[in-house]
Design a protein around this nucleic acid. Sequence first.
DNA 1: GCGGGAATGCGACAAATTGCCGCAGCCGAT
DNA 2: ATCGGCTGCGGCAATTTGTCGCATTCCCGC
Lengths: 184, 184
Amino acid sequence: MSADTDAADRSSLLLVDDDAAFCRVLTRALERRGFAVTSAHSSIAAQQAAGADPPEYAVVDLNLAGDSGLLLIPGLLALEPATRILVLTGYASIATAVEAIKLGAVNYLPKPADADQIVAALAATGGAAGAAINQRPLSVNRLEWEHIQRVLRDNDGNISATARQLGMHRRTLQRKLAKRPVRT
Amino acid sequence: MSADTDAADRSSLLLVDDDAAFCRVLTRALERRGFAVTSAHSSIAAQQAAGADPPEYAVVDLNLAGDSGLLLIPGLLALEPATRILVLTGYASIATAVEAIKLGAVNYLPKPADADQIVAALAATGGAAGAAINQRPLSVNRLEWEHIQRVLRDNDGNISATARQLGMHRRTLQRKLAKRPVRT
DNA sequence: GCGGGAATGCGACAAATTGCCGCAGCCGAT
DNA sequence: ATCGGCTGCGGCAATTTGTCGCATTCCCGC
């Protein structure tokens, strides 16, 4: 689609994800789409890379080992307020999506997402109310997931406390969290 | 119980939802929590009410008949930029959540949500600084029950259709309905 | 009136999930 | 160094769900 671009005028993009394999694949895909990709596998490495050369775009995975990718957002924006940050996560929930946007991310996508979706999300304009309203109610499982994520956040990730508030067994909550969010 | 007598020191809140019954219940609950509630059942009515007297808070349902409640957000903020808007919807999705926050809502909750959650969400600070309000979230069972009842009502009591939308087995839904409504 | 399609209630049995142990490791406060 | 709380996880029994089948009933179009 795009005209041939020399390395000079490519947009710089910082990819942060602790899954090395996923990172490699996505890096290649994004490079093919005209970005100059730098990747980091930890929050700290990401901070360093950004400090050396603040990127125009960033794609951040939420569940990095250690601290949440959420905390990375203000850090990146502090270095360069114009950075367009996309949050990408396998454990998507409305609660973290809301938080990410409030912190300044331009978009939020659940994994799996392909490179085209990612590029589109990075480019998305803030003002356009293009989101169509879903016609179906959430499935009970999905609603449960959303609720759990919300309460878990309110409890700062404390699983025991969350289980208590939710009236479910701690072991059960652990098992539910280990799974992926349900689709539909 | 009329609310027009002691509205002086209460915070004004505009509730926009086309479900009259839901509106009544929530209005009462919010009034008990110290808000001066005005309700509107359509986007247009909401605009008029806000135009006459811009509220401090707003709770907006997304799927209003006609146009999306999403479009109401910029409208309300144009009248009064300090309005704290909470989006509340039975058809929650990450995409609309992202959009709502980008448009300036302070929070986004899937229905069903109880009044305590709503108040907490309205009060939530923009950043990661935690709000120390002690709210007791609904148990997952309770949440599931509320959601089932809501969807069942949307489907005019059709159990088969409800089960399909909820992604659960019809037999399971039958069994759940046969049981007592769960408490807390 | 009759056949088709869809809903409903319910029994039975297998599959999956949950509740409930227990244990060991890790902090942070005393 | 000790106590208490949180975490991850294995294992096993109890409970819940998924899946089928079947008999009814209701509604619609022919």
